[in-house]
Amino acid sequence: MSERDSGSSGRVKAKEPTQELPKGASSRAKTSGQAPFGAFVRKPVERAEGKAKANVTNAGSEAAAMRAETAESWPADAVEVGAIVDAYGLKGWVKVAAHADAGHGGDALLGAKRWWLMKGRERKSAPSLQAKTHSDSVVAHLGGVTDRDAALSLRGSRVYISRSEFPALEADEFYWVDLLGLDVVNLAGVNLGKVADMIDNGAHSVLRVEYSAADKTGKPVIAERLIPFVGVFVKTVDQAAKQIIVDWEADY
């Protein structure tokens, strides 16, 4: 089941069971077999190569490209997908460290028409004129950013994308951000808690489920369960009902 998370962008796909018991989790999850970034996507390399090409959107007028934003004008479905770490070249391009690996989950950054930037309390947005993968990062030219100095001034900005601009998923794939907060219930109908986070162990995704418990003194505490997001354990993801059905016992 599309990551870190933070509201960060991953998507997960539940893998089919393998001979080894799954131990971890990823930014995009697929239930046919594997799931903070709070929400992003990780695509197989062979599918991402075509996406790695520069994506040119409607440039429009750069004069009106970069604009100031407020908490009220910020999109309600904004998901943090990376951060601007440096300038790239001399013509106003920026370099972004994506929460999901570039070429694996950077397609949300590549395809989004508008980027929303937050640096401290300052909020801005700009159209993405061109974006592409470069080595292990994403580089992009944003409207209104015309030279290296302007690009350098954006260093440290957290990059958000509207959830509505995320690429469409296959039927059995999910963005991490869409799984956070869902109730986890086993086949016997026992509520095991809520998805608090997703983990990527390199092989597949893992649900980190929090639930109320008591310590040895009887004091209420928050405990957690780690459930591999793979088909052998995850049976149903019902986003409408905000529920995940798993083959997992409460005392595991």
Rank of each mutant, 00 (worst) to 15 (best):
T236P: 07
G105A: 04
V145C: 01
D147K: 10
Y88G: 04
K43R: 15
N201V: 14
V139E: 10
V246S: 01
F37L: 10
E72T: 04
R11K: 11
V96S: 02
K30F: 04
L180A: 00
A35T: 13
A168T: 13
G38A: 14
E173G: 13
D197P: 02
R4K: 14
A151N: 12
K242C: 02
G92A: 06
S164R: 13
S125F: 02
V234D: 00
G202T: 06
S32C: 07
L152E: 08
V237W: 00
A168N: 13
T18R: 15
M1T: 09
A65E: 00
A168P: 00
A100E: 12
I244L: 06
A131D: 01
V96A: 00
M1A: 12
W74R: 14
R28H: 02
P17Q: 07
S6T: 11
L109N: 07
G92M: 09
G231D: 10
Y88L: 01
A71H: 06
E20G: 15
L187N: 09
L129G: 01
V234I: 07
I161T: 08
K124P: 12
K216V: 00
R163I: 11
F233A: 12
A188Q: 14
L109D: 03
R114P: 07
W93M: 05
G33F: 09
G60H: 03
K13E: 11
A14W: 13
V195A: 08
E249A: 14
P228G: 03
W115L: 11
G38N: 15
I199G: 03
K53I: 07
A78Y: 07
W176Q: 09
I161Y: 04
L187C: 02
V221N: 03
A98W: 03
A48G: 09
S128C: 14
E62C: 10
D172V: 10
F37E: 14
V85D: 06
